[in-house]
Nucleic acid binder design. Structure first.
Lengths: 320, 320
DNA sequence: TCCCCTTATTGTCAGATCGAATATAATCGG
DNA sequence: CCGATTATATTCGATCTGACAATAAGGGGA
C-alpha cells in the first residue's frame, strides 16, 4: 500500500485498491395521533436504504430516490446523522469495505402516495423504555434488576462501579432525572449487557415486550441515533413544524413535541414559549374538534426560518 | 442499474458497479498562547487526510493513522464532523465517486513529536472576520459594503431581501448580535458572493488580508464546519479540557475558551459557572507567572466525564 | 519599608427566565 | 340553564444571568 505521494487530493486518483461500497439509509419520522412513527419497508423492521449510485446527483438526492422508490413517499426535511463503517458487512471471503451514511427525515404520514411494500410503526415498539409520557414505563422495572446484575457481574471492582454509574445516568436510577436525549447510550448499554436480541444470543435476553422489537442488522442502532438527534434538535431549532399539518392547534403542537420527547410538558409554559418566540401566527379560524372550548388554529411563521434561521429558536423541555 | 432485489442488506453484495473512493480528513485543533491553531501539512493550507484503506480497523483508526504518519502527531479526542460527496473530484473522464468523511480532533501542541512536513497556523489566518476578541474586526468594514452590494445585485426583489437578511443575520449587521456559531453560514455567504478565492475567480475578490488565506480544494469549508461545531460544543460538553495542560489557572482556561469562541467572556461569571459545575478541582499549587497575585492551579475533574458524561455540562457564552 | 501596579478572588444586585399553580372564557350535551 | 370539558390568560416565587464593584495577594521601584 502506497502511503506516500499524497496530501494533495489530486495525487490520489492513481490509487485504485481502496474503494468501498456506500449505502444511504434513512430514518423517516412522522407523528400521527400523538404517536411518533417510523417508515419501514418489507415485512417491517427494515429502514429504507440503497447504494449510492452513479446516477445520483448528490448524497441527499440519492437518498430521496431510494426512499421514494421503496415507499412512494417523497421526503421534505433531511439531515445527515452519522457515517460508519459496518464491520458486520465486511465480507470475510471478499476483501471489501462497506460504508453507511445515515439520514434523518421528517414528513407527514398523509403525504404518502400509498406505495405497496412499506408501513408505519410507532418507534416505541422498538424502544418501549423510551416513552415516559404516562410515567416511568413498567418495562424499566424489569430492565433495572437485569442491568444491575450485569453491572455486578464484572470481574473487577472498577468496572463494576463504572457500569453501575453508566446505567444509573442513562436510565435515571437512584433518584436521577430521566434524560430523554440519552436514547443511544441506553441502547448501547442494553446491547453491551446482552439484554436485547441484536446482542448476539449469548446473553439472557429479556422478553420481546420488554426489550422491544429488533431490527435488521444495525438498523435499531441507527434509529436510536435518529431519535436522540431529533430529541435534542427540537429544543433549539423549529423542526417540529415539518411534522405538523399546515394549520394546527397549540395543543396538537404540544402533543407532537411530547410524542417525540417521550415526556409531558407543562401546558401554559409551552404556550408562553411558543408565542413569545413568535414561531406561529393565528390563521383566524378555530377548531371545534376538541370537545371543549374551540381552539384557535395557528400556522407556522415561515419567516422565522430566514429570521432566526440559525439563531436561537427553542422549545421548552429544558431541565427536568 | 438494478434497483430491485434489495431492502435487506445481504441482497446487495452482488452489485459491484457502485463503489466509491473514501477519504478521511482531519481538522486538528490546539490552542497555544490564546491562539486557536490548526494542524496543516505540506506547504500549509492543506488538512491531513488519506484514503480509507483495507488495513484500517475502523474509520477512526484510519484517520489516526494518516494524521500520525503525515504529522507525527498522535490524536486524542476525535469526533465525526460530516460526510459529503465531493463533486469537484468526480473525474469527468473516469466515472467514479469520491466520498469525504471529515473529523474534528483536539490535542495540545506539545504532544507533537515534531515531524517534518507539517505546521500549526492560527485559524484566524483563514477566517480574519471570525475573531471578535478585540471588538469587531476591521475586515468587516470592508466586507460589509461588498456583501450589501452583492445582495443588491440580485435580479428580483425577493432575492435581494433574502440576501440582505441572510447577510445581516450571519454577520450581525443592523444592530443584530454577533453569533459566533455561524462560521459556516458566513463562509457560505462569502463563497456565494464570490468574495473569497475558492469561489472561482469570476467575482471581485477582496484582498487576501481581508478574505483570509485560501486552502486546497474544499478544506477551508471543512475547517469552517469544524470551527462551528467546536464553538457550539464547548457550551454544553466539557471538551475544552482536551486542549489544556494537566494543570492550569482559571484565566488560562478562560483564554482558551475565548480563543475558540472568538469573543471575550466576563471573568467573574466564567469562574462562577466553572466552579458551580464542579468541572475542576484545585491542585493545591499556585502559579506566579501571571505578574500579579498568584493564581491557583486547577485540574480537570475527570469524574465529570462519567458523572455528567452526556448530561448538561455547559460553559458560558450564552446569549449576547 | 512603603506605595503602586497588576492580577486573582469574592460578593452584590437588578433583570430575565422558568416551573408550577390559579383564574377566566367558550363550547357542547343534557 | 347547568355542568362538564377544554382553551386561554395571569400570577408568583425560585433560579439563573449579566454587569459591576470590592477586596486580597503578589512583584517592583522609590
Amino acid at each position: 500500500m502506497d502511503h506516500q505521494a499524497k496530501g494533495t487530493k489530486k495525487g490520489r486518483a492513481a490509487l485504485k485498491a481502496d474503494e468501498a461500497k456506500v449505502d444511504l439509509i434513512a430514518v423517516v419520522v412522522a407523528v400521527n395521533d400523538s404517536e411518533p412513527c417510523l417508515l419501514t419497508i418489507g415485512n417491517a423492521d427494515t429502514l429504507p436504504s440503497g447504494p449510492y449510485a452513479l446516477e445520483h446527483r448528490s448524497l441527499q438526492s440519492g437518498l430521496r430516490g431510494w426512499v421514494e422508490q421503496q415507499t412512494g413517499h417523497p421526503l421534505g426535511y433531511i439531515e445527515q446523522l452519522y457515517t460508519f463503517a459496518d464491520r458486520d458487512r465486511i465480507g470475510a471471503e471478499r476483501q471489501e469495505r462497506a460504508i453507511s451514511i445515515s439520514y434523518l427525515a421528517l414528513t407527514r404520514k398523509e403525504q404518502a402516495t400509498g406505495s405497496a411494500n412499506c408501513g408505519w410503526r410507532s418507534w416505541y415498539e422498538y424502544f418501549p423504555w423510551e416513552d415516559h409520557r404516562s410515567g416511568t414505563p413498567v418495562v424499566l422495572d424489569i430492565l433495572r434488576p437485569r442491568l444491575i446484575e450485569w453491572a455486578e457481574g464484572a470481574s473487577d471492582a472498577t468496572t463494576r462501579r463504572e457500569r453501575r454509574q453508566r446505567a444509573a445516568i442513562a436510565f435515571g436510577f437512584d433518584d436521577r432525572n430521566w434524560n430523554e436525549e440519552l436514547t443511544l447510550q441506553r441502547y448501547e448499554l442494553l446491547y453491551e449487557s446482552a439484554l436485547i436480541e441484536e446482542a448476539g444470543g449469548g446473553g439472557d435476553i429479556a422478553p420481546a415486550a420488554v426489550s422491544g422489537k429488533a431490527m435488521i442488522a444495525d438498523h435499531r442502532r441507527i434509529l436510536a441515533t435518529g431519535i436522540a438527534r431529533l430529541r435534542s434538535k427540537i429544543k433549539y431549532r423549529p423542526v417540529v413544524f415539518e411534522l405538523m399539518r399546515p394549520s394546527f392547534t397549540l395543543l396538537q403542537l404540544q402533543r407532537t413535541v411530547e410524542a417525540l420527547a417521550g415526556r409531558l410538558i407543562n401546558k401554559p409554559n409551552f404556550r408562553r414559549l411558543v408565542e413569545q418566540q413568535e414561531l406561529v401566527e393565528e390563521t383566524g379560524e378555530t377548531s371545534l374538534e376538541t370537545g371543549g372550548r374551540p381552539a384557535k388554529l395557528y400556522r407556522f411563521r415561515h419567516a422565522v426560518l430566514d429570521d432566526r434561521a440559525v439563531a436561537g429558536t427553542k422549545l421548552p423541555l429544558a431541565r427536568a
